[in-house]
């Protein structure tokens, strides 16, 4: 069993040295790239830290560590990460590429909302993948929320979304969460379908949030994903999943900065309660230690 790699582990070596020298910078760069920050952001961060170290004329790695933490925290907390669910019904559309954990996230999110005593209905608009509806059904049961399923195999996802919102309006359910099929951002036809779902729902009521689910193990492609989904689905928030693995999700910093879309939720496990709001402080704490 390999020891799980972690940025904090990698950085421990960096900061446990006596002074800041060339190897410190090298190792720092290595660690940041290893955490999927990507070459550009890594360069910016090391550049900035070098400047600060020069300005404060310090040689203590402990200072460097503090600066790094502050730098990351500052950059991550530039955007407001609160979910806006004040409409009634508040419609949340969940989108993302295949296999990032959309359905699981919805299950956990529904439970999360139930914990605050909100009434929730989920819409199984993933009519494409085999057994996706059943998977969501299981989650809905676990979370104790209602579900709207397509009446037949391969029904138009937009119509499922429509029916879900309709049900919520009729029965005054507070929050609607709509699951969509995973789609790679390069498939134009599928991306257009997403636009359609959005248009159909918008005719009924305003959409409160469009959440893009990103897998923390994703590398630099995360940025391409975010850009495509923002363009086609008007994403308002990011959800980072699978943070319980050895992955680090450094790429979200680049995503957040380049797109201006905040991270709103983080998922850290397969249990139904493993979903929390995003707090930069905690995130950085976990990342750097």
């Amino acid at each position: 069993m390999a020891n799980p790699w972690s940025l904090s582990g990698a950085l421990r070596g960096v900061f446990s040295r006596k002074t800041i020298d060339d190897t410190t910078w090298d190792d720092l760069e290595t660690s940041l790239i290893g955490a999927d920050f990507g070459p550009d952001v890594t360069e910016q961060i090391t550049e900035h830290l070098r400047e600060q170290v020069a300005r404060y004329n310090t040689t203590d790695p402990a200072d460097l560590r503090r600066m790094l933490r502050e730098n990351l925290e500052e950059r991550l907390s530039k955007l407001d990460s609160t979910l806006k669910l004040s409409n009634r019904p508040a419609v949340v559309l969940v989108v993302g590429v295949n296999g990032v954990g959309k359905t699981t996230t919805i299950g956990k999110f529904a439970k999360f909302l139930r914990n605050f005593d909100r009434t929730v209905v989920v819409g199984a608009a993933d009519t494409f993948r085999a057994a996706a509806v059943e998977q969501l059904g299981t989650w809905a049961e676990r979370a104790g929320v209602q579900i709207v399923k397509p009446q037949q195999q391969g029904q138009d996802p937009a119509s499922v979304a429509f029916q879900t919102v309709e049900k919520a309006m009729r029965e005054s359910i507070e929050i609607v969460i709509i699951d969509t099929a995973g789609r790679l951002q390069t498939k134009a036809g599928l991306m257009d379908e997403l636009g359609k779902i959005k248009r159909v729902v918008e005719k009924q009521t305003e959409i409160a949030e469009v959440l893009l689910v990103l897998d923390a193990t994703t590398g630099q492609n995360g940025l391409a994903q975010a850009e495509a989904f923002i363009q086609h689905a008007g994403v308002t928030g990011l959800v980072l999943t699978k943070l319980d693995g050895s992955a680090r999700g450094g790429f979200v910093l680049a995503v957040q900065e380049q797109t201006g879309i905040p991270i709103k939720l983080v998922g850290q496990g397969e249990g139904i309660n493993d979903l929390t709001g995003f707090t930069p402080h905690v995130f950085v704490q976990n990342l750097i230690g």
């Binding site: 799980p4 790699w5 790239i33 193990t217 994703t218 590398g219 630099q220 693995g245 050895s246």
Partner: peptide, 12 residues
């Protein structure tokens, strides 16, 4: 699409 984690995961 996996990032730098590929190595660790593969090793594991």
């Amino acid at each position: 699409m996996i990032g730098q984690d590929a190595v660790v995961t593969a090793k594991a």
